[in-house]
């Protein structure tokens, strides 16, 4: 048997942990460093977020991309939330023996479907349909991207929802049943009020996935740099902007703008984590 001294072992396990954390912070530091020229030039970081994009007149604000990201992500939540809630009710509350289990299996498998495949099928299946149905624009628009994103993020929500429904103590439900409540009543008046933090956490995490996804918006949203006026307008997300501009001239301000995008995404991710952790831990604490 090898005998590693206790202290050394702890250090050995600590080192990679410290490295991983350093990298996590380093990612932000690196982007700050590289994005600095633009931030200094554009005045304030906040200014940059609010400015519009007009390279011709020296404006490299990422406001259109922020609007693009937020509108695509929130619309996808609008589609995915009721769908996921319905599916979770079917799995946990209605609990149909065959279909419920089947649905759970399908949802679990869905988490393994590569994003690029959603994008690929979207290009050839969804975009032409959207164009034909609405008879406006090219079909590459916010709507197409959010519909596909909704499919992508649904499993995240469903698995989170069902888990928090299942965590509601059984005795609560039994008490309601004893009072003559039906399954629906039990869900609405007992399960949902007890599990709302979990539901909200699932919503936040799914929103994080939608904001952070690159491929679907890149392939389906059309990538125009404008503040979209309708869901049928083409739009560009922060993530797509990075993917489209990263190869540009490294010294150009256009290139530096992608670090502003990177920082915004990083900060959004941090905010979401803070929100989800806050909600979830309070939830655990209550029990």
């Amino acid at each position: 048997m090898i005998n590693i001294p206790e202290k050394a072992a702890e250090k050995l396990f600590l080192l990679p942990t410290v490295i991983s954390i350093a990298i996590t912070i380093g990612i932000f530091g690196f982007m700050l460093l590289l994005g600095l020229p633009l931030i200094i030039r554009g005045g304030h970081f906040l200014n940059l977020l609010a400015q519009s994009w007009a390279p011709g007149s020296g404006l490299y604000g990422i406001y259109p991309m922020i609007v693009g990201s937020l509108s695509i992500a929130s619309l996808s939540l609008v589609f995915a939330f009721p769908l996921s809630l319905g599916c979770s009710v079917l799995i946990s509350v209605v609990g149909h023996e065959v279909f419920g289990r089947f649905l759970r299996g399908v949802v679990q498998l869905m988490t393994g479907i590569p994003t690029v495949i959603y994008g690929f099928v979207g290009v050839f299946l969804l975009v032409p349909r959207i164009r034909e149905i609405f008879q406006r624009g090219s079909g590459m628009c916010i709507l197409s991207a959010s519909l596909m994103l909704a499919v992508l993020i649904s499993p995240t929500m469903i698995l989170f929802f069902t888990d928090s429904f299942d965590h509601v103590p059984k005795s609560y439900g039994q008490a309601a049943e004893a009072l003559g409540a039906s399954k629906g009543q039990k869900f609405l008046y007992v399960t949902l009020p007890c599990a709302w933090r979990g539901v909200l956490t699932g919503l936040i995490l799914a929103g994080g996935r939608a904001l952070g996804d690159t491929l679907i918006a890149l392939m389906l949203a059309g990538n125009a740099i404008q503040i979209p006026g309708s869901v049928l307008d083409s739009a560009r997300t922060l993530t797509s902007h990075i993917a489209l501009v990263f190869a540009a001239d490294y010294e150009s301000l256009e290139f530096k703008s992608i670090f502003a995008c990177g920082m915004s995404l990083y900060l959004l991710a941090t905010l979401l984590v803070l929100g989800a952790r806050g909600l979830w831990h309070r939830n655990e604490g209550e029990k």
Partner: peptide, 14 residues
């Protein structure tokens, strides 16, 4: 948790 939530494109950019 942050590392897990950072969008992959940001990691690629880094």
């Amino acid at each position: 948790d942050i590392l897990a939530t950072i969008p992959s494109i940001v990691i690629g950019l880094t």
